[in-house]
Design a protein around this nucleic acid. Structure first.
Lengths: 365, 365
DNA sequence: CTGAAAGCGCTTACAG
DNA sequence: CTGAAAGCGCTTACAG
């Protein structure tokens, strides 16, 4: 399964002797018992030394710490998790992790989780389908205190299972709300409307939206709100939908849209990646110039949107805020039978892909 | 710490009752004992049912499975890890996860780990410095079977601690070799030489390299090999070094290089991100055209290198192969007192940022 | 094939 | 403050 082109050459390195320490194979690690023995105290004493707020005398503590250090002792969080009611593990369930937006979110989440004394376990759902359920079961197996769902949507029964087992759920931009979970949402719908208005103010009249076939709640909300606002204003919008929401789809979408007789002069892309593709198609394949011939607005504000070659006007995802809200809720650990919802806002980031406001253009002929 | 601009509005959702199941707070999850009771068998029987290859009669197995399903039982991997000598957890130690190359590696690693029945725990070392050691200690706390180091380099003493505790180390593009570890390396040095030769064949004569101040082994090897090969051939190379290895540094590096009186006609960038920055600086700030006025070669083959706006000639990192090699070694679980090394190769990917071969140019005046 | 029992490494009332 | 003991949920020889 791992094949590919890079040639692999393995060889043993002779040198370097073996580590001084313990023998062969899966070495047993040092336990509290060992430390207790060396320090001349009880196992309980060493446990207390490593439990913030437990009562140990300074002297005992010193002896324990010394012995622990000498032995290289680390408290075993697995065993601790078995005893206490929580493990400190939080599962991040995610597909297509290498995408700019996703990886930024995962970076923020792992960093903040760490700062809060938790640790992230990542469960990759790229593989087979219908795996959100499997992922959640795996999280359950490791007794994760919580699971953060970045991709896919668990159905009710598995969510209930999590809830029954005390595993809390945070749903990022998913639409259902589930018992014992928190739902983090961004203002996708508002963004769609703002994009439309921005185009109109710029004097654009041949409107289009480019989106993918991934029907995530966010993408749908962006698309629909743009369309609805247009309908309200009695405007026509050409809508093209294709593939996954990546750069390549953007390229294809750009081609399809720009080849039309009624060539759009503005396109709202539900994703920055799509927008970059659309821009490249416009420039390289149609010789168009942006924003003079075509205005583009994206969503996400991935790093590439700010690159000189794009300078894309877009909506910046509140990644830090989202991650903070998730981690705070997890760390707070309230009983959470009542579903909770937090609304975050993606704010518009003006760059140079929308032409400057200009007088109402005469209807293009 | 998590502040920022997005406005946050939280509110409770009233509806939806509470889940039918267990009561308030950190619900206790169902254990093998519960299943055993319901199925009318011993705890050992349920354990065996979930242990591949253990001996259970079909009838017992059926009863157990039925009860387990009814109760929503999941074996507790933490408890299992306590008993068996391994937990199935592998720690990924990484900084700057949101970078294209890093996130692709993490995606590959998590996917393959999962396929091999392991699970990835990610330890983010963005925060404070000197945290590789802390990260490794955390991995030890969770009794990770292995730790994969993508960023930073642990010093000898902590590596020994890992080894003594039976935690195996995989080092991706780090230069030291450590006991009980595997070292995965890519042919950076060869790449540097190939890049130089490619420029020469294209007729470029005013050579430069653009790199960052991150002194990772890989970056250094790429830079040095390019420089040395040039020296061997008696050629001069302008070398510019700046910041971290991202797009912004590339922009700055491009400016610094292109403003020089002896303007380079070829620049080898130790990273694709830097290359994209250099290309944008060349085009947008100097009105240069690529490859006519300037040839560029990068390294990594991140997705953006293939975007129409760049079409960057680069070296593609053997990400899948690297991840496979790492996971195979981890899964194999050999005793590993002897350090092991695997050499992978990044192959050159020709695109359009190097001008076509041309007759030896008359020495530019 | 199956169950009783010991053990993995920790924590936490419970006495002192 | 401190230790002995029970318990967290599982697995694995050991007998049967």
């Amino acid at each position: 399964m791992g094949g590919g082109e890079g040639k692999v050459t393995a060889r043993k390195i002779s040198g370097d002797a073996r580590a001084e320490g313990a023998g062969q194979g899966g070495a047993k690690s040092v336990s509290a018992k060992d430390v207790a023995a060396l320090a001349g105290v009880s196992r309980a004493a060493v446990s207390r030394t490593f439990t913030p707020g437990a009562s140990v005398s300074a002297e005992t503590r010193r002896k324990v710490l010394e012995a622990a250090d000498a032995l290289g002792y680390q408290v075993n969080h697995l065993a601790r998790g078995l005893t206490r009611q929580q493990t400190g593990i939080v599962a991040l369930i995610v597909a297509k992790l290498a995408t700019p937006y996703r990886s930024a979110m995962v970076q923020a989440l792992t960093g903040k989780l760490q700062a809060a004394g938790k640790v992230a376990m990542i469960i990759n759902t790229d593989q087979e389908e219908a795996t959100v359920e499997l992922a959640l079961r795996q999280a359950l197996s490791y007794r994760a205190d919580a699971a953060v769902i970045l991709s896919g949507m668990p159905d009710r029964s598995i969510a209930d299972l999590c809830h029954r087992n005390g595993q809390r759920l945070v749903l990022i931009n998913r639409d259902d709300s589930l018992p014992g979970s928190i739902q983090l949402r961004v203002n996708d719908a508002q963004a769609g409307r703002m994009a439309l208005l921005a185009f109109l103010r710029a004097g654009c009249r041949r409107l289009a939206v480019a989106t993918s076939c991934d029907d995530t709640p966010s993408l749908l909300a962006r698309e629909r709100s743009f369309l609805e606002e247009a309908r309200t204003l009695g405007l026509d919008v050409q809508c093209e939908r294709f593939g996954a929401s990546g750069y390549d789809s953007g390229l294809a979408l750009g081609e399809r849209l720009l080849v039309r007789p009624e060539r759009p002069d503005a396109v709202f892309c539900t994703t920055d990646l799509i927008a970059c593709g659309v821009m490249d198609a416009a420039r390289q394949r149609f010789g168009l110039s942006i924003p003079a011939d075509l205005s583009v607005i994206g969503f996400d504000d991935i790093p590439q949107a700010g690159w000189e070659a794009y300078q894309l006007t877009t909506f910046t995802q509140p990644i830090e805020e989202t991650a903070s809200a998730a981690v705070d809720w997890i760390a707070r650990g309230e009983n959470g039978d009542v579903p909770c919802r937090v609304d975050l806002t993606a704010t518009m980031r003006w760059r140079r892909s929308v032409r400057a406001r200009q007088a109402e253009a005469a209807p293009a002929g």
